[in-house]
């Protein structure tokens, strides 16, 4: 099709534009549906902005109030970080263990795979209703079963020490999504790699550490980042299951923002809150990304590096 003369020129031109053509849908979507509202909310954060009535420009007062005059801001931040610290590693670990379990070539594994995935299919609203229904400390079914076993169940939703654990239990129920992502990746590892290792005398644990883990580091990165974001923005469960209680022990940052916007009707202040969290998550993500060059191995990049070295 191309004559030999103009091929290289055209090729580079096309190659310069081509990547942008591929990502064009997202760029359009970003400009139309995200950028505007985002800028708007940044502007809102500089205003005293009730849902109805006069809006008033107040500069950085919302941020000042947040940092200096609202103890709930710090409380919510701490609780949320605490939750993320428990939730993220636990969820990753459970997801990974389950993903490994369901790759076991044993009978009936398909059924278990479906069972483990099942809760991830349920909506957040229904999850909170189902668990709230079981967690009732006085007349709920969980504590009743525990009492049959001779254990006095905790006051799940009344005792502040237990409430955050309750949230962890209920939210870990939906671990299936992450499990499935790990599973898809693990399933993609060629069987020959294990076979070769097995011939070399590596046991299952050894194989897991030297083959499975390195190959799935890209998905680990994905799951770490998305679950950090999910944990820091958790709202549905605390809104519907605990309402932030008992004693504000589950008054997560997401709920703090939500209440400022929808209960106290302070849209400007809520925007300021949200922008702060946005920046925190952004910095965290960038940090994780920076660190990822040390522990995430992409096949495409590995190959490139090797080639580069060869050329030298």
């Amino acid at each position: 099709m191309f004559t030999k003369k103009n091929k290289p020129k055209k090729f580079t031109l096309v190659r310069k534009r081509v990547p942008f053509l591929f990502i064009l849908p997202w760029i359009i979507g970003f400009i139309v549906f995200t950028l505007g509202p985002l800028v708007f909310s940044l502007i809102m954060s500089l205003f005293d902005w009730p849902i109805a009535g006069e809006t008033k420009f107040i500069g950085f007062d919302n941020f000042k109030t947040m940092f200096t005059a609202d103890p709930q801001f710090y409380d919510s931040l701490v609780i949320t970080l605490k939750f993320a610290l428990i939730f993220v590693p636990l969820n990753l670990l459970v997801a990974l263990v389950l993903a490994l379990l369901i790759t076991q070539p044993i009978k009936g594994i398909k059924i278990f795979r479906t069972i483990f995935y099942l809760p991830a299919v349920v909506s957040g609203v229904a999850v909170s209703i189902i668990w709230g229904w079981m967690f009732n400390s006085e007349y709920g079914v969980l504590n009743y079963i525990l009492s049959l076993l001779g254990i006095e169940g905790p006051d799940w939703l009344i005792d502040p020490k237990w409430a955050i654990i309750t949230i962890v239990i209920a939210s870990a129920w939906g671990v299936g999504t992450m499990m499935l992502i790990f599973y898809t990746d693990i399933k993609g590892i060629p069987y020959e790699m294990y076979e070769a290792a097995s011939i070399d005398g590596a046991g299952p644990i050894r194989q897991f550490i030297s083959i499975t883990i390195p190959t799935i580091t890209p998905t680990i990165l994905f799951n770490v980042i998305t679950s950090v974001i999910a944990a820091l923005q958790q709202l549905t469960l605390v809104l519907l299951l605990t309402g932030g209680g008992p004693l504000k022990s589950t008054y997560f940052y997401g709920l703090f923002v939500y209440n400022n916007a929808f209960k106290h009707h302070e849209l400007g202040y809520a925007s300021a809150n949200a922008w702060f969290m946005f920046i925190i998550i952004l910095l965290l993500t960038m940090l994780i990304f920076k660190s990822s060059s040390a522990w995430v191995f992409y096949e495409a990049e590995v190959k490139k590096e090797r080639k580069g070295r060869k050329r030298k």
Binding site: T34, L38, F40, M44, I229, Q233, A270, A274, M277, F278
Partner: peptide
């Protein structure tokens, strides 16, 4: 970063 935008404000 678009994943991290809190839903409430936009």
């Amino acid at each position: 970063s678009t994943m991290m935008i809190p839903w409430d404000v936009t």
